[in-house]
């Protein structure tokens, strides 16, 4: 049995941050679209300082996401950003691009580095490689299955983070695909938002019941899963294996929904660690989540129990 895992939740505003911490989150992930991708909202640097003060008072951690693939033009301002984050006293930075790792190591070596290469963090050995480069945590790809995740725990020299709830990104392009399509159709897009708040989604001909959210921002086009992961029923397997951090994805969800989900996972984690041997899953937890779940989005085990071929 491992240590009690952290419950990590992305927050889009100070208000959300307060709500989520009150609901039982141990850590929040924040940032802004300029550096971090697929965040539920933007935090300016001043807000980040405030978030840190608020969270640290409650013994919670604040991580900032710089998980985008950077182009040359951003390297200079990245240095400034990291300097300011360091002053703000944040606890960790999520990165995918080696340029971020190098910059943080150089400017703010006290900040922990969480390697998050999205769908490409797929094995323990590569995670350990980033460990030797200074990373202290790997954010595992959401396409891994339960066996892969649990088997790699004893092999990892660094902490691991697993997404246990919410939607996942399934496609990211630098192209503005919705904009292109609308232009092709001759539809006006000027001024109209194609961002998250627009509620755009794709439906594929043979899967009429699955809605894949799609949106554009300064990082290009993002397509999201049609289902929401919910590993709650089998959370104990992950807890027993020693996963260090559980992430609940809050993107595209009202905060009331997220609040409920956080409370339930909090309860499950606490119950388990009071007495792991006699832990029993409470059906009512699942019911509470189902009551607030968007009926058009299936709760699923994601890839946890899927067999993939290639």
């Amino acid at each position: 049995m491992g240590n009690k895992p952290e419950l990590l939740v992305p927050a889009g505003s100070l208000k959300e941050l307060e709500t989520y911490l009150a609901a039982g989150a141990d850590a929040v992930l924040i940032g802004e679209a300029k550096y971090g991708m697929r965040l539920p909202g933007d935090f300016a640097l001043t807000d980040i300082a405030e978030a840190v003060a608020y969270a640290h008072e409650r013994e919670a951690k604040v991580y900032v996401s710089i998980n985008k693939l950077l182009h040359n033009e951003q390297l200079e301002e990245l240095r400034h950003y990291v300097t300011e984050l360091s002053k703000a006293g944040i606890d960790g930075i999520q990165f995918g691009d080696p340029a971020v790792l190098q910059t943080v190591r150089e400017i703010a070596p006290q900040i922990s580095l969480h390697w998050n290469a999205e769908m490409t963090s797929t094995n323990y050995s590569t995670a350990n490689y980033w460990g030797t480069k200074g990373a202290s945590r790997v954010v595992l790809a959401r396409e891994l299955n339960m066996d892969e995740i649990t088997e790699m725990q004893p092999e990892l020299n660094i902490d691991s983070e697993v997404q246990v709830h919410g939607m996942t990104n399934i496609y990211h392009s630098k192209r503005r695909l919705v904009h292109s399509y609308m232009t092709h159709q001759g539809r006006p897009v000027d001024g109209g938002s194609l961002d998250k708040d627009r509620g755009l989604f794709l439906v594929e001909a043979e899967r009429p019941d699955e809605k894949f959210p799609i949106y554009e921002d300064e990082n290009g086009t993002h397509i999201m899963s049609s289902d929401d992961i919910c590993i709650l029923e089998d959370l104990h397997l992950l807890m027993a294996s020693g996963v260090d951090s559980f992430k609940i994805e809050t993107l595209f969800k009202p905060s009331a929904y997220n609040e409920t989900v956080i409370r339930i996972y909090r309860q499950a984690i606490d119950t388990y660690f009071q007495d792991p041997e006699n832990y029993e899953f409470d059906e009512e937890w699942m019911e509470s989540i189902r009551r607030v779940q968007d009926p058009e989005r299936e709760l699923s085990f994601g890839f946890f129990y899927k067999e993939q071929v290639y």
Binding site: H172, S173, G220, Q308
Partner: peptide
């Protein structure tokens, strides 16, 4: 059309 490596459409479909 995605950033290489950053597409799991096939995994999902």
């Amino acid at each position: 059309s995605s950033y290489s490596g950053r597409c799991v459409l096939s995994n999902h479909f």
